[in-house]
């Protein structure tokens, strides 16, 4: 019977009066891509820092591959690969020097684990004599991932790895993660992009240091209980407020240039049109849409706030 790869149980962490993690629990299976989604300040980075042995929790326990993050921190540091949210390699060292440095510190060499990072590193190898500080955002991420992977970790923890990276590089990055998963590596990743959440095996929604829901991304969407409409009019400024005051509205959030309105049962489109016209809106467009994961998340967040 094999235990889960990452186990977090009732972990609490406070900074002075503010609570970063509030009795958070989760389990990540072996060779799973587990996504963590939540607003800034939800506690994602604190959780990652606890899992990588950089932070000691106030209470609760956490383990990686059976090693306790507090007691067995030395073992943890051998088996975990961590990519902090900020690019944290040496700007003034070249691509190759950075990789070599981290390889030697972990007591290995580039040659030894070249197979593992080949797909990623081969893309930046043409620039191996360029200083890391002079790389583009996408290349920086690839180098950081290579450095985090160079010691063949069993668990990979990535803190918003694709923030500030162009769309093409993001796609490539996720393909690399899928390839690493096939190698049997457990991957815990946080992301602010909802379209990336879909790519995870399971996602956890985290807010105020607590997990709101852990599901496969598709299931979260299926569970969405309300009908959803996309609405826009000529007066977007007042629209949000007007929609929220509408008697049959559940919640309304701005999504790009439209507003997504979730409605209560018994909603009639004509009734809303009539209501909006009464509020002097023109060019009213209302279309029913399928919920996306972001809608689900917004919904969960508002439910949580009501409690």
């Amino acid at each position: 019977m094999q235990k889960a790869s990452i186990i977090v149980k009732d972990v609490t962490k406070k900074y002075g009066n503010s609570t970063a993690l509030n009795g958070l629990s989760l389990e990540v299976e072996h060779a799973e891509i587990f996504g963590l989604i939540g607003p800034d300040g939800a506690g994602k980075t604190s959780l990652f820092r606890i899992l990588t042995s950089l932070l000691v929790p106030d209470s609760g326990m956490a383990s990686l591959e059976g090693f306790d993050v507090v007691k067995d921190y030395r073992e943890i540091r051998k088996i975990v690969g961590y990519m902090p949210g900020r690019f944290s390699l040496y700007f003034d060292l070249t691509v190759q020097e950075n990789l070599e440095f981290f390889a030697t510190i972990f007591g290995t060499s580039i040659q030894q684990n070249y197979d593992l990072i080949k797909d990623i590193y081969s893309q930046i190898e043409p620039f191996k004599n360029r200083k890391a500080g002079k790389l583009s955002g996408g290349m920086k991420q690839k180098l950081a991932l290579s450095c985090a992977m160079i010691h063949k970790p069993q668990v990979l923890i990535l803190d918003e790895p694709t923030t500030g990276v162009d769309a093409v590089s993001r796609k490539e990055f996720w393909e690399m993660l899928k390839a690493l998963k096939k190698e049997g590596i457990t991957i815990l990743v946080s992301t602010p992009y909802m379209d990336e959440a879909i790519l995870c095996d399971r996602v956890a929604l985290i807010q105020k240091g607590r997990i709101l829901s852990i599901e496969e991304p598709q299931k979260i969407i299926v569970q969405y209980a309300h009908d959803l409409y996309s609405i826009c009019t000529d007066n977007m400024f007042d629209l949000l407020e007007d929609l929220r005051n509408f008697s049959k509205s559940n919640s309304a959030f701005r999504f790009g240039d439209t507003i997504h309105l979730s409605v209560k049962s018994g909603f009639e489109k004509a009734e809303l049109v009539h209501y909006l016209e009464g509020k002097n809106h023109e060019q009213i467009e209302i279309g029913k849409i399928d919920p996306e994961i972001e809608d689900c998340f917004m919904e969960l967040m508002t439910d949580e706030n009501k409690i």
Partner: peptide, 13 residues
């Protein structure tokens, strides 16, 4: 300041 210490700290050093 550069954050590089974060990466060093997770190594077995």
């Amino acid at each position: 300041e550069m954050g590089t210490i974060e990466q060093i700290n997770v190594t077995p050093i």
